[in-house]
Design a protein around this nucleic acid. Structure first.
Lengths: 226, 226
DNA sequence: GCAAATTTAATAGTATTACTATCAACTTTG
DNA sequence: CAAAGTTGATAGTAATACTATTAAATTTGC
């Protein structure tokens, strides 16, 4: 039975799962409720046993889809960045001005997302909150090199490369386009987290879009040739 | 017996330990070898049992100094930022030009440190590598609010505030000095990590100080009034 | 429409982790 | 030199991150 609502599907590197979770009811349930549970209790407290209890399936069943909870996090990350790449394509297609394209990219990287009806079921808002709070754990560990070889970060790298290319279009002389992009992405995540938990480490403002304004200003000033 | 070599001591919030590790041979051993072991196997693999084996002391003895391995990481972080604040004071004292002071601050935030003979025994190079790789784990979790109340991040906040004040001195109109500082600090950490493990997420260059050059350029362009 | 293959549920088991508890031996200090 | 404090040695516990096994349910291919 076909459960797809739209014809768009985020392609995920099969090395990140044992059995495609989109191929069965249980798999979809695992991803769904997994997102909810990680959001609720945090990744360190999250276990497949707890997730099993929530979906009334034994722990062992979940292990048939994902090798470990770490790989599950990598899967969610890859999904998120796949989706972000798709959003980027939508946002910049048919926009001829490179400046405008970069503007839209920075906005996408720094603002909170909105739920997308094309991927009903996956709560993208929650997913982004997870990525903001937990993503760095997906690479800041000793298995990073193995995960990297497994292609865990491909979609992230692709996204970054696309935006970096726009920067190069605007200023081919600028030497650090990739660094600038990852600085913005990871920075925006941190600031978002700080605003909620460690306000003295940020400049939270009530103005809408203050975060994207800060980074927009930073990016355009930085790449401007002297 | 007095084991201090210099009269300078980094003050750490006592809430981060049960018994001051600088007050005994064993305590000093724990911190020393703890740094080595975390550096070697990473924070997730690190356990007090393994550390106990390394220093030939029972696990339970270590628990008399630190409540948990999480608090141990918070302690190391606090120590690092206390030391960084001290380095900052040394670097900017007697420098009257605010621009020059900011330049020195950015350099300190983005370059690798060198071992400091005033704190013999503590390997600051290794400590920085730990902070770069593991620090975000010290706040990216559900206990962050508790840890924050315990004053775990005070020395970090103080450091950030000091640099932000220099920015305000240069451009009182600039609205996001703190955000800019934390973006630089956390960004530099990430880039350093990426350069080693995920090179496609950065623009590694062979030039010395390319990292500080990138951030120096970014900071000064960003705060320049339009 | 039914046998074969696949998927899931249910249960049990293992090594390790992150601690806590207890008590004797040793050291320091007043 | 006694009392107080520190360390060592050992043991124990609940939970985690898995693996293994087998039976029941479901899907599929002809």
């Amino acid at each position: 039975m076909d459960t797809l609502i739209s014809s768009v599907k985020i392609a995920i590197n099969p090395q990140l799962y044992l059995k495609d979770p989109e191929s069965s009811e249980l798999g979809i349930n695992i991803v769904h409720n997994g997102i909810d549970l990680i959001k609720e209790i945090g990744f360190e407290e999250f276990t497949f046993r707890k997730l099993g209890l929530q979906i009334h399936s034994p722990e062992a069943s979940i292990y048939r889809y994902f090798e470990s909870k770490h790989k599950f996090l990598l899967y969610l990350n890859a999904w998120y960045w796949g989706w972000m790449e798709y959003q980027l394509l939508l946002a910049i297609s048919n926009v001829s001005s490179a400046d405008k394209r970069l503007e839209k990219s920075v906005f996408l990287m720094t603002e909170g997302v909105q739920n997308d009806p094309n991927f009903q079921g996956i709560d993208i808002v929650k997913m982004q909150e997870i990525v903001v709070a937990e993503a760095s754990k997906s690479f800041l560990n000793k298995q990073v090199d193995q995960a990297n070889q497994d292609g865990a970060y491909l979609s992230y790298k692709q996204f970054v490369a696309k935006v970096a290319n726009i920067i190069k279009e605007i200023n081919p002389q600028y030497k650090y386009p990739i660094m600038l992009v990852t600085t913005v992405i990871e920075g925006a995540h941190q600031q978002r987290f700080f605003a909620e938990h460690l306000p003295r480490l940020t400049n939270k403002q009530n103005k809408p879009h203050y975060l994207s304004k800060f980074y927009m200003d930073l990016v355009f000033k930085t790449i401007k040739p002297v």
